[in-house]
């Protein structure tokens, strides 16, 4: 089976995000960069499919030079090879541009199933998997929490508001991974050593023959709206008094209950 897993390097969930004074982006100093947590679920599922059914896992990543570290992490987990799409022109790329680059790279290799994270926790756009599927002209199932290989297709669970769907999707297809799909492994020390020797093909936009034009652009980054300082409820300093005061405020002042 030919399996592709797309990964992105993002700031760690604990990272404080500071907007540059001119609003042109975020301050990258001091940020710890990690593999997007949802992509980790995709890589793990790719490895499990390979271990059960045989085949090869290729990691594809759009990102600057530092993103090589994330590709190596996936290789250390057990993936076989990587494609690193690295070009300064992709900085701040939107979903369409990113998916176009991924599609160009993936079209050149055999692919039965392509994993992506359901969203990246930096721009939170949650689009790349679906755009990629459209550009590859293959079906998609997004936000998947369970996957079962069924010969030439997969059967997956997709939670939606108030229900869960069991969906069958034939190969080739794109699957986007949600938390719950699996518990990603840590790279072993021998895995890390081996990863250093695994092949990673580095390509720029020219080599892929894709445009780097963005359709959507962040014209300005702004800090989140500040919330006015809240009220600490003291009342008569008993739990009962505080509880009564809180209920009254929510009813009469906030009018939310």
């Amino acid at each position: 089976m030919n399996i592709v897993a797309c990964v992105k390097q993002v700031p760690d969930t604990e990272a404080q995000i500071k907007v540059k004074p001119d609003g042109s982006g975020i301050e990258e100093g001091g940020i710890k960069w990690v593999m997007n947590p949802y992509d980790e679920f995709g890589v793990e599922e790719a490895l499990r499919l390979k271990e059960k059914n045989g085949g090869e896992v290729t990691i594809v990543c759009v990102g600057p030079a530092r993103a090589m570290e994330t590709i190596r992490t996936a290789l250390a987990m057990g993936a076989d090879k990587g494609i690193h799409i690295s070009d300064p022109a992709f900085d701040g790329a939107d979903a369409y541009t990113t998916a176009s680059a991924l599609a160009a790279a993936i079209k050149g290799i055999p692919h039965d199933i392509v994993f992506c994270g359901q969203r990246a926790i930096d721009d939170d756009s949650a689009q790349v998997g679906a755009v990629l599927a459209e550009l590859l002209e293959i079906p998609q199932v997004t936000v998947v929490t369970k996957l079962e290989f069924a010969g030439n297709s997969v059967k997956v669970i997709r939670p939606i508001e108030g229900a869960q769907l069991l969906i069958e999707c034939p190969f080739p297809c794109v699957v986007t991974a949600q938390k719950g799909l699996n518990e990603p492994r840590y790279a072993s020390l021998p895995g890390i050593m081996k990863a250093k020797k695994k092949p990673v093909d580095v390509k720029d936009a020219g080599a892929l023959g894709v445009s780097t034009d963005r359709k959507a652009r962040v014209v300005r980054f702004v800090p989140p709206p500040a919330r006015a300082a809240g009220k600490i409820i003291c009342a008569d300093d008993t739990p009962e008094g505080k509880a009564a005061e809180l209920a009254k405020l929510l009813r009469e002042e906030a009018k939310v209950i």
Partner: peptide, 14 residues
Amino acid sequence: PMYAGKCFGEIAIS
């Protein structure tokens, strides 16, 4: 919201 609301972006589409 971007970065899960740690900052916001104003987006224009061309």
